[in-house]
Design a protein around this nucleic acid. Structure first.
Length: 555
RNA sequence: GCCCCUGUAGCUCAGUGGACAGAGCGACUGCCUUCUAAGCAGUUGGUCGCAGGUUCGAGUCCUGCCGGGGGCGCCA
């Protein structure tokens, strides 16, 4: 019996009680059960009686007792106790616990997926770093977290488009182009320009591709066009090497060239939210809770930055996405108010049609001390540097295992350590251990056909029960992580629940050995244990895959 | 001044209103003839920043204060 099935059984018990006239409440839509921290509180517990007490107008313990009687008769449930203020503590039968293995094996790579977000069409925008330089650590975090979130949402049944907004319009790009031009001429970088060695490299590449670039009528335009394309190619390549590929790379420039910006402004004007003042065109975002109104078209006739966002949002909605999700760094949190107001001004619902996820900053540490990022001092850390220093798996895992609400310290010395100080290896090690045991079983001639006959009710050791319950949690963990947009929950679950209980089980070498010794045939219990190892390997693989991290066969 | 994030063990951090607050690292002690010791067990270590409030129940929700980070442009 899985947690979901138990929850359904509890709900059924409530319905029965209501029907029988024992309980006067409107039944809850779904009942969730949780794993109690204390062993004596059973395999699963629910506080549903406490929740129903008010509506029912009866003491919670009384309701709990009522439900306990009904639940006690459900097959697979060994015992139900009423505890404390009105908790229901449920003990499952061993045979019932073991069935989780069957479910994991049947579903395989699909185990853990759920339908919580079925039918949703989500556009997830992340990274979107400007093509004026390589992706540095600010963007790296969103690459890891954003891609993991995309995988989670897909695992919860949503259709997800990963999108990268390519900011190839405006003053920043002009500065970039000017910097390339001056570099090509062998001059010093302009005052407000970009300097780094990559500027010189790109300038050279452009010159190699367009030898007469400096002689053309508008050389800066040549460097803009070619340089941006070059930079963008590099960004795309390093993201690809990081395991992150986008479905759509959207060019801001296209919004301006196609007239989409003008159309978006006209749409807002038609909705009555546009006015003119001091020669500029304003969006009255204060109508929808923003601090102040925002200029969308500057008095010099140029579009303000936000106008691109207006058109972009509209474009996404017109492409059929009912949910537009954007991940931004904390340095952009000031945009949330105006973006939400913009969403409302279009007649949409902020928080539903538009969702903005703010992630906190990252610091680079050296010897435990924060390091100021400085191009001149050579302390800029790019995505490529990070991958080179610690590897894709360790980098993605470390970036995704912390809550995005917390600032993150990147400690290269720590992240590149191949020890237990580095949790990614802890999880991967458990996965390879499972693989190793299963490999040996095959070598001993234990075939899948033989394994399929295993009696999972033989998994009666307490450490086996712990592991079974850990494996049973994956679907709920995935659903919650997706719903809360918190991929780090997957990592913590893998570390603290799955890998931990698998390792403890493995270490019980006297009582829980899975492989036969001395050329003997495998016992029925050992076959069941091998199936549990197979299920464990599957859960670790599925969980790591959600984070974009590999589950190696060997370490 | 206003807005967002944050404050939990010596350090790094989990903990979507539940029961006795957890993990890793560090320190100390054990465990390799036998499925991978990148592992396991144990000991040590907490006024969950402070003060109120809501609740049967608060690390979690609300208010105020204190500390840390970020943001408040006709920049992008």
């Amino acid at each position: 019996m899985t947690p979901a099935e138990l929850g359904a059984a509890v709900r059924a018990a409530i319905l029965e009680a209501v029907e029988a006239g024992d309980l006067a409440v409107s039944p809850p839509g779904a009942v969730t059960v949780e794993r109690p921290k204390v062993k004596s509180h059973g395999d699963y517990a629910t506080n549903i009686a406490l929740q129903l007490a008010k509506a029912a107008g009866r003491p919670p313990r009384e309701i709990a007792a009522l439900l306990a009687t009904r639940l006690g008769a459900v097959p697979g449930i060994d015992a139900v106790e009423v505890a404390g203020p009105g908790f229901l503590n449920v003990h499952l039968s061993q045979a019932s616990l073991g069935q989780v293995v069957r479910q994991v094996l049947d579903r395989g790579a699909a185990y853990g997926t759920n339908a919580a977000a079925a039918g949703q069409s989500i556009n997830l925008e992340f990274v979107s770093a400007n093509p004026t330089g390589p992706i540095h650590i600010g963007g790296v975090r969103w690459a890891a977290v954003g891609d993991a979130l995309a995988r989670l949402l897909e695992a919860s049944g949503a259709t997800v488009t990963r999108e990268y907004y390519f900011n190839d319009h405006g003053a920043q790009i002009d500065r970039f182009a000017r910097s390339l031009l001056t570099a090509a001429r062998g001059q010093e970088a302009p005052e407000d320009g970009y300097s780094g060695a990559y500027i010189v490299d790109i300038a050279k590449t452009v010159l190699a591709k367009v030898p007469d670039a400096l002689e053309q009528a508008d050389p800066q335009e040549v460097f803009r066009r070619e340089g941006v394309e070059q930079m963008f190619g590099e960004i795309r390549a390093s993201l690809h090497d990081f395991g992150v590929d986008f479905d759509v790379y959207f060019h801001e420039n296209s919004l301006h060239e196609s007239g989409a910006v003008v159309r978006a402004v006209e749409r807002l004007r038609a909705n009555g939210h546009i006015y003119e003042r001091d020669g500029a065109v304003w969006l009255r975002t204060t109508t929808f809770g923003d601090d102040k109104d925002r200029v969308v078209l500057k008095s010099d006739g140029e579009p303000a930055y936000i106008s691109g966002d207006l058109a972009y949002y509209l474009d996404k909605r017109e492409r059929g996405f009912d949910r537009v999700v954007i991940m931004l760094g904390a340095d952009h949190h000031g945009y949330v108010g105006r973006m939400m107001a913009m969403c409302a001004a279009f007649g949409d619902t902020p928080g539903v049609n538009l969702e903005i996820l703010i992630g906190q900053m990252v610091n680079l540490l050296r010897d435990g001390e924060p390091l100021r990022m400085s191009k001149r001092a050579g302390t800029v850390l790019t995505l490529e540097d990070l991958v080179e220093a610690v590897g894709v798996d360790a980098a993605r895992y470390a970036l995704a295992r912390s809550s995005a609400d917390s600032t993150l310290d990147i400690d290269l010395a720590l992240w590149s350590k191949q020890t237990s100080a580095n949790p990614v290896y802890y999880v991967q090690y458990a996965a390879t251990r499972a693989a190793s045991i299963l490999r040996t079983a095959r070598e001993l001639g234990i075939t899948d056909e033989v394994l399929a006959t295993a009696d999972l009710g033989l998994l009666t050791h307490p450490l086996e029960a712990e592991l079974l319950k850990a494996l049973a949690e994956l679907p709920a963990v995935v659903a919650t992580a997706a719903e809360l947009r918190e991929p780090h929950r997957i990592a913590r679950y893998l570390e603290e629940k799955v890998a931990k209980s698998a390792q403890r089980w493995f270490d019980e070498k006297q009582e829980c050995r899975a492989l036969p010794q001395d050329g003997e045939a495998a016992t029925a219990t050992q076959l069941a244990r091998l199936q549990l190892w197979t299920a464990t390997r599957t859960v670790l693989e599925n969980g790591l895959r959600l984070l974009g991290v590999s589950a190696p066969e060997r370490m």
